[in-house]
């Protein structure tokens, strides 16, 4: 099973006028269990695309199906929203309940689950994000620290046990520890429960280190869709459309410029150090 995007086109309307399409003829498949990184500069259609994955928006042309469920069908939408969890930018701004428990339980309760099951799910989700249920369940979400609030909000999505998790800039505004916690969580979700991760991010380093596939959106079209190694080896084209590249790719480019023949597909610290070791061994 997978998310299939076929010929998706979408345009916003303003004052009754149809604007230039935000998404243009997107076609690809998001494989189950993969980690798709979506990059592109602000206004390229990333967030609009994300809203198509659970039917908050649906294209005028083309279709998105999640495990065979068409997101544009009103009858399928409930199912789709259970399958696809959405973590928006600054998700802590959506917290509303009196206690962390009630907030995290909002999704499961909307799914009309039994109270026992709700409790199991909330506990499980809170543990996943590293908020001890004993300590945090009865606290007000508004009393938590910034990083804790972010994790509580993510727990609210995880409690629905989504098969696909879409995250729009989940690390924005967090400090380095906060960022690392979120990335570790995503890796854990993927390896332990086989959750498919779709992450929009501006951090090329994070994308290079974690994504299995990278989609580059440019003015609503798929500019590139490939492994991070392949995508970032097109550094010149990426820079032309105003995107940056991972720090390691920058280093490789500088080294190329100085006549060192290091392959451009190297985009993580790990790969770079492996290459150095190889050079050292051959020397």
């Amino acid at each position: 099973m997978s998310i299939i995007v076929s010929h998706l086109t979408f345009a916003y309307t303003q004052g009754g006028k149809r604007l230039e399409p935000t998404l243009k003829d997107l076609t690809f498949t998001i494989e189950e269990g993969s980690f798709l990184g979506i990059i592109g500069h602000t206004g390229c259609g990333k967030s609009t695309f994300a809203k198509h994955l659970n039917g908050l928006l649906f294209g005028e042309k083309g279709a998105v199906t999640v495990d065979g469920h068409d997101v544009s069908q009103k009858s399928e939408r409930k199912k789709v929203r259970e399958l696809v969890g959405m973590v928006f930018q600054y998700p802590e701004y959506q917290l509303f309940a009196e206690t962390v428990f009630d907030d995290v339980a909002f999704g499961p309760r909307n799914m009309k689950l039994e109270p026992e099951e709700v409790k199991t799910r909330v506990t499980e989700a809170m543990q996943l994000v590293g908020l001890d249920p004993e300590r945090f369940s009865s606290r007000s979400p508004f009393d938590l620290s910034g990083g804790e609030r972010r994790r509580a909000a993510i727990a609210g999505v995880l409690a629905m046990r989504p098969k696909y998790l879409v995250l729009d800039e989940p690390m924005a505004g967090l400090d380095p520890i906060g960022r690392r916690e979120i990335l570790t969580l995503l890796e854990k979700l993927r390896s332990e429960s086989g959750c498919t991760i779709i992450m929009i991010s501006h951090s090329m380093d994070d994308i290079a280190n974690h994504a299995t596939k990278v989609l580059v959106l440019e003015q609503g079209s798929a500019f590139l869709l490939d492994t991070p190694q392949e995508v970032f080896s097109h550094a010149d084209e990426l820079q032309q459309i105003g995107l940056s590249v991972p720090s390691i790719t920058k280093l490789c480019i500088e080294m190329n410029r100085r006549g060192i023949d290091i392959p451009r597909t190297i985009c993580t610290e790990q790969a770079f150090m492996d290459w150095i070791r190889e050079v050292k061994r051959n020397a």
Binding site: P246, S247, K250, L251, R277
Partner: peptide, 27 residues
């Protein structure tokens, strides 16, 4: 990141200076 890589390289025995703070200086 450039500093992290620099430190790893130094640990491997490459004599790099403390002035190398970005990709350009490091390379």
């Amino acid at each position: 990141e450039a500093v992290a890589v620099r430190d790893s390289l130094k640990a491997m025995g490459y004599p790099l200076s403390d002035r190398a703070l970005n990709a350009e200086q490091l390379s």
